[in-house]
């Protein structure tokens, strides 16, 4: 499907252009959102982010690892409705340990070099989101689902 190819290309360039995304977790049914610096794997199957273990989002993940993340390229102007692309990612988050951690972390730091001290501090966890589905919204209302694992 050429469509899929085109969408993958768009996803890659969106993920390259955006530094942060909005991560949603939940506790007892109460949704909770946080801004996180993210990176994507080359094959689009995983996303990565880092957080302190003491944060509320990290605490929320231990009883329920399901997350959603919003990544978009809006410019905060009215024409965003037509031109911005918004992607909602759903999947499960898990903390990575070596050796897996090293390869992914290298890629992550290539995108966010200024976070080197942050991610190497002992209180910081490095997490992977295994993506289930991308929900891609363009032109305000055009929506496609890209299923990665299902």
């Amino acid at each position: 499907m050429n469509d899929l190819k085109a969408y993958k290309k768009d996803l890659k360039s969106l993920f390259a252009s955006q530094h942060t995304g909005v991560l949603a977790t939940q506790q007892d049914g109460q949704p909770y959102t946080s801004l996180v610096a993210f990176a994507s794997s080359e094959d689009l199957k995983d996303l990565f982010f880092a957080t302190m273990r003491a944060t509320r989002k990290f605490a929320n993940l231990s009883p329920d690892s399901r997350v959603a993340m919003l990544i978009d390229n809006r410019s905060n102007i009215p024409s965003d409705f037509q031109w911005a692309m918004g992607v909602t990612v759903t999947g499960r988050a898990e903390e990575l340990a070596d050796p897996e951690k090293q390869t992914s972390l290298t890629a992550y730091l290539a995108k966010h070099p200024h976070l080197e001290d942050f991610v190497s501090s002992p209180g910081c966890a490095f997490l992977r989101i295994r993506v289930d589905t991308y929900y891609v919204v363009t032109r305000f209302q055009k929506v496609v689902e890209i299923h990665v694992r299902s």
């Binding site: 499907m1 199957k45 305000f140 209302q141 929506v143 496609v144 890209i146 299923h147 990665v148």
Partner: peptide, 19 residues
């Protein structure tokens, strides 16, 4: 139709909302 070799691919795309 198009060759079905893409089946091994995990990714599949589905329209959800069409304008």
């Amino acid at each position: 139709g198009a060759p079905t070799q893409g089946l091994k691919e995990n990714f599949h795309i589905k329209a959800r909302q069409i304008v």
